[in-house]
Simulated scan of single mutants.
Amino acid sequence: MSTRRAVGSVGDSRPVRILARVGYVGSALIHLLLGVLAIQVAATGGGEADQAGALAQLGDLPGGPLLLWVTTVGLFALALWLAIQAVLGIGSSSKKRWIRSLVAGAKAAAYLVLGATALTFALGSSSNGSSSAQQASASILAMPAGQLLLGLIGVGAAAVGVYLVTKGVRQKFLEDIDAPTGATRRPVVILGVVGYIAKGIAVAVVGILLVVAAITLDPSKSTGLDGALKALVSLPLGPVILVAVGIGLIAFGVYTLARARLARL
């Protein structure tokens, strides 16, 4: 019990909560740039529309190196806070608390990976999201039962995408924030709905491409978020769909900026 109290005290500490909010700001900037890159891909067919491309763009902004370091620290702090929430849910008799704990753990892992990617750019290196995804898929396929494992990962990613779309449609994201009242509530709700739906679509397409890579035993089919967004271009009215997704990702970025202030930490 003393260990649990110690972990809880770290999560409740003011510095960690402030840095976690900084992490939301960093995540917001990344999603804003992702949306812009997605629209550029729809217009030109070129560019890298994933987290690596967004971080590269962030580094090119005035004060970019400082922004990258602040974003890196914030993302790691947000991952730490979420990991603490996951740990605090372990051992609970409440099924709902267990589910929240698992979700928090998954989010912590995602922000940890994003923070590590941001750190790479802050240190002056670079990364290609598509090639990294292909290499990871090839490594998984080389494992015993790797085809099944990659397929399950793809199904899991697609399920996350569906969950995000559902969360947006049902406005469940309002449970994560101290929703404002009055005239400011409606814009926050609209941004959250549009943003979660757009992000869910993008994540679901990533999952589908992973499943295709597993079925065909072709890791080149797994191209991460960049490949997922570019795959949308090949659909009927693909550029229009991708522009809509890009606008949605921008909306998610603006919502996440609001969440940095409103999040229940």
Rank of each mutant, 00 (worst) to 15 (best):
R5H: 12
V7M: 13
V7E: 13
S9I: 12
D12P: 03
R14G: 15
V16D: 07
L19M: 10
Y24V: 05
A28T: 07
L29C: 06
H31E: 09
L32Y: 05
L34R: 09
A38V: 02
G45Q: 06
G46E: 04
D50K: 07
G53N: 08
Q57K: 07
G64N: 08
L68C: 03
W69I: 15
F76T: 08
W81R: 15
L88D: 09
L88G: 14
K95S: 06
R97W: 15
L102S: 14
V103N: 03
K107Q: 15
A110D: 08
Y111I: 03
A118N: 10
L119K: 04
A122E: 03
L123A: 02
G124V: 01
S125T: 10
S125V: 07
S130W: 02
A136V: 10
P144T: 06
Q147E: 11
A157D: 02
A157S: 11
V162F: 04
K167C: 12
K172A: 14
T181N: 04
T184P: 06
R186A: 12
G195A: 10
I197V: 14
K199T: 13
K199S: 09
G207R: 01
G207C: 07
I208V: 01
L209E: 02
V211G: 13
P219N: 00
S222E: 06
T223W: 09
L225M: 03
G227F: 01
L229T: 11
L229P: 14
S234Y: 11
S234N: 13
V240Y: 09
I241Y: 04
V245I: 13
V254S: 01
V254M: 03
A258H: 01
R259V: 00
R261Y: 11
